[in-house]
Nucleic acid binder design. Sequence first.
DNA 1: GCACTCCTGACCAAGAAGGTCAGGAAAGTC
DNA 2: GACTTTCCTGACCTTCTTGGTCAGGAGTGC
Lengths: 153, 153
Amino acid sequence: MRVSAKADYAVRAAAELAAAQAEEAPVKGERLAEAQDIPLQFLEHILLELKHHGIVRARRGAKGGYWLARPADEVTVAEIVRAVEGPIAHVQSTPPEDIEYRGNAEHLQAVWIAVRASLRTVLEEVTLADLVSGELPSVVGELTSTKDAWVAR
Amino acid sequence: MRVSAKADYAVRAAAELAAAQAEEAPVKGERLAEAQDIPLQFLEHILLELKHHGIVRARRGAKGGYWLARPADEVTVAEIVRAVEGPIAHVQSTPPEDIEYRGNAEHLQAVWIAVRASLRTVLEEVTLADLVSGELPSVVGELTSTKDAWVAR
DNA sequence: GCACTCCTGACCAAGAAGGTCAGGAAAGTC
DNA sequence: GACTTTCCTGACCTTCTTGGTCAGGAGTGC
């Protein structure tokens, strides 16, 4: 139930690309790495994965770099996380809908399904455009509005 | 963003203990392992962790076994997951409230906070009593009621 | 004393996490 | 055509986690 460095890096880099989308010119990996303080070579691997998933595009050579394949308001955080981390909320590496529980754990499946659904309500709502503008969807506002949400347990 | 085998096992074993709470007698590790099809020796380590976190109690010897330290309706799934997996929704092993993002990723912190909060709305609501009775909290019902929640993406 | 059951630490193999390194392959520039 | 720039790719590396197993020790009850 944790967020990997890779996923965090990926979203941050994508946010930079979203912000640069107006510029109409590719952004170098180096610039992304510096802007978000991410190890360049590691970032390149991440960007490559994002490219393979059709989220970013790239061109080599002078004047080359990366850019978003789609408008920033059509790319969700969920997509990016899935691209680098794989499916969200799998249990023992299998999707919750495929698990069969026995005995008194029978209803645990519904709980894991709810966990995944709750993650989706956040991750699939927030787009890169939301992220850079700071105008986050109302679901995020509701979830972060209590003092409680900001403290550890 | 996945649920480990350990967490899954822990919740299932705890559910069995919750169901056995009426019996007023300890449950052997072996019986738990068989009921939920969990490798016994691995389960013993898990139960030990749960014991160290004050969730279960145990006694050795003949007539020994495990039982819940508290009533089943006072133990949440969140507690059990935290006991065996550590804090929920940490980013790069640090709690989201401690992270500072720069540049265009500034608002990412709020997103991770929302992710954690949304997980909490499920995991902290569901108790072991809910789990064995099958009468899950309404938040679970709402999240699992759409067809969409039960399919992969 | 003995059987039973939990308790604990050591160990282990495989994989993931979080990178680094070296070189190749396009794209643009002179 | 040569050269520079930048992405592309695979190999490699270290450390930690995951998902266990094994062996023995220590209480508990009869």
